[in-house]
């Protein structure tokens, strides 16, 4: 009986697997290229992005492939170095979100009655809050630094992962092996860390990657509004300066606005695709 069911499942997974695998590979390649760009920025960038290396407002040419900005910094180099900031903030913020989300999700799922109800109302509040205004207020209040940006984003996007993980924990806690561990006399701490948390790891991976995609977008929005770290430029802050210097209205948008926009999209889409294909693999096993 079981062998039949397994065969049916396997067949279905294979069929559905193909598209999601292709998309997943696209995502991995995109993200991989961006990561290489971030890691090897000093070697790849033709100039130091903080130095004035040419005349201001130069259009693309042989010396500056994407031209220069209003103070004569090389835009291509800014873009390459900007990937470091964008990716680091995105990944760090997602990690912070996952940490909070897992803690809340596991507690709420394992103690679903009082503590769980209380925590999930908190989750609801965070989900309901209007994102961007709050983000702006918090970022403005805390000051403009890389760490603050990361923390603010992390503090706002943990609610989604918390919900996903809670639902998994709710099902895990009623599994018989958790009951068995309790029957051995294991304290809750033991069952949570030995039997529940490790089993949420797969699911957490999926929501982590998805959270990175979201965090990169949020970081870009914050920086575009001028709330990013003024010293370390990300793709979003490149856009902020382009906007401030009127590049959106001049022909300069082609080399000043479009490239960072495409990069933001590529990074966020890359992570989203990986998340999609991961979830496709993980979810059927729930």
């Amino acid at each position: 009986m079981t062998s039949k069911a397994a065969a049916g499942r396997a067949g279905r997974r294979r069929r559905r697997g193909r598209t999601s695998d292709v998309l997943g590979i696209c995502g991995v390649v995109t993200v991989g290229l961006l990561l290489i760009m971030a890691v090897f920025a000093p070697w790849l960038a033709p100039y130091d992005p903080s130095e004035r290396v040419g005349r201001p407002f130069q259009p693309p040419g042989r010396e500056h492939l994407l031209g220069t900005n209003d103070v004569g910094q090389d835009l291509l180099s800014e873009m390459i170095y900007g990937s470091r900031v964008s990716l680091v903030v995105g990944i760090a913020a997602a990690a912070a979100a996952l940490l909070i989300g897992t803690a809340v999700g596991v507690l709420a799922g394992y103690y679903p009655r009082r503590l769980g109800a209380f925590l999930m109302r908190g989750v609801d509040v965070v989900l309901i809050l209007p994102f961007l205004p709050l983000l702006i207020v918090l970022a403005a209040y805390l000051g403009r630094s890389l760490l603050n940006t990361t923390l603010v984003i992390g503090a706002l996007i943990w609610a989604g992962p918390a919900r996903i993980i809670r639902s998994q924990v709710l099902s895990l806690r009623s599994r018989e092996y958790v009951l068995a561990a309790r029957s051995m006399g294991a304290p809750d701490r033991w069952t949570i860390f030995r039997h529940v948390v490790p089993r949420t790891a797969l699911l957490a991976t999926g929501s982590f990657v998805r959270a990175v995609a979201g965090a990169i977008l949020l970081e870009a929005s914050l920086s575009f509004l001028g709330l990013g770290d003024p010293i370390q430029k990300s793709w979003g802050s490149v856009l902020f300066w382009a906007q401030a210097r009127g590049a959106f209205l001049t022909p300069a948008w082609k080399w000043w606005v479009l490239p960072p926009g495409l990069l933001i999209m590529a990074a966020s889409l890359g992570f989203a695709l990986i998340a999609f294909s991961l979830e496709e693999r993980i979810n059927p096993r729930l």
């Binding site: 018989e176 092996y177 068995a180 029957s183 051995m184 006399g185 039997h195």
Partner: peptide, 16 residues
């Protein structure tokens, strides 16, 4: 609770 241990109906689902 060491003194009481339990054996379940379905051994497979009772093991991680």
């Amino acid at each position: 609770r060491r003194v009481v241990q339990m054996i379940f109906q379905d051994p497979f689902s009772a093991m991680n």
